[in-house]
């Protein structure tokens, strides 16, 4: 019997709170958008049966992909060295600029409201443009070659590292900042002594991460002619040589894996 558990002095039970209209409206909105985006008529035309039927057609490609053309490894070396150059230069230059932009784009470290708004706006715009679009534009500016790739990835790195670092600055312990102010420090001194040391390990970790991203992105930006191993990928694809495609992709996996393990080890010591 449930009445045994009920307290002696029976109080009136509270009314179930009226449900907000927001949740059902949200769910409806979500379903409507999904139907619209997935429908054949207005959207991408998502249908599972067609998809399964199509997948069978892909068997030839998949079987070629499963059999990489190992003997072509020599052709990887020169493009890879170019990729390495692009990734290193872009990470060094991009991440240095990102630190400045990030310090400007956090309310904690910005010297004033105006520079805060300016840095924040620049970072937002830089981040809104995809890496491949940068590559296309800079191929138009510098013509085909690694320089376009370097500049494209510099901007890409400013966007990624700038945003992550400025969010880290937003989240630091305000105590040391107050302590530095209480000691009579000026703004630059507060930034240098109380803010930079607190975010430096994260910043270095983000920069290493940006280097990894650059190696991965090299497949993509090279595709539009911005140099490096991506150009090889593009050539292989346009010749329908999926066995070479597989070799290039696997090679980049291996490189990213090595760099990632190295930077994880380093990050662990830093943070």
């Amino acid at each position: 019997m449930t009445s045994d558990v009920a307290p002696r002095t029976a109080r009136t039970r509270p009314q179930r709170p009226a449900r907000s209209w927001k949740a059902p409206v949200g769910v409806l909105l979500f379903l409507a958008i999904t139907w619209w985006a997935g429908s054949d008529r207005f959207g991408v035309g998502f249908s599972l049966p067609d998809l399964l039927a199509n997948l069978e057609r892909g068997q030839r490609i998949v079987s070629e992909l499963a059999d990489p053309r190992w003997q072509a490894w020599r052709s990887l070396i020169d493009p890879f060295i170019e990729t390495l150059r692009i990734a290193i230069l872009a990470a060094l230059l991009g991440c240095s600029a990102a630190l400045v932009a990030a310090l400007g784009a956090s309310r904690v470290s910005a010297p004033g409201l105006r520079s805060y708004l300016a840095s924040k706006g620049v970072l937002n715009v830089v981040r809104a443009i995809p890496d491949l679009l940068y590559a296309m534009v800079f191929v138009a500016v510098f013509s085909i070659g690694p320089l376009a790739g370097i500049v494209a990835l510099i901007l890409f790195n400013i966007g990624v590292v700038g945003k992550l670092t400025s969010e880290t600055v937003d989240g630091i312990d305000p105590g040391p900042v107050e302590a530095a102010q209480a000691a009579g420090a000026g703004h630059a001194q507060v930034v240098r002594t109380a803010i930079v040391p607190a975010v430096l390990p994260n910043y270095i970790a983000y920069s290493l991460y940006a280097f990894e991203l650059n190696l991965r992105a090299s497949l993509v930006v090279g595709f539009v002619g911005a140099g490096g191993i991506g150009q090889l990928l593009q050539v292989a694809l346009s010749a329908f040589r999926y066995d070479v495609v597989a070799l290039v992709v696997l090679f980049i996996f291996a490189v990213v894996f090595v760099v990632e393990s190295f930077s994880i080890a380093l990050r662990r010591r830093l943070v």
Binding site: V44, G45, F46, N54, R57, G58, L219, V245, F257
Partner: peptide, 23 residues
Amino acid sequence: SLPELVLAILFVSIIGLGPLAGA
């Protein structure tokens, strides 16, 4: 570790041009 662009290329060659390959 698979970049989307590479995946997109594969899907385009498997199921043909169009937004579904992208999705």
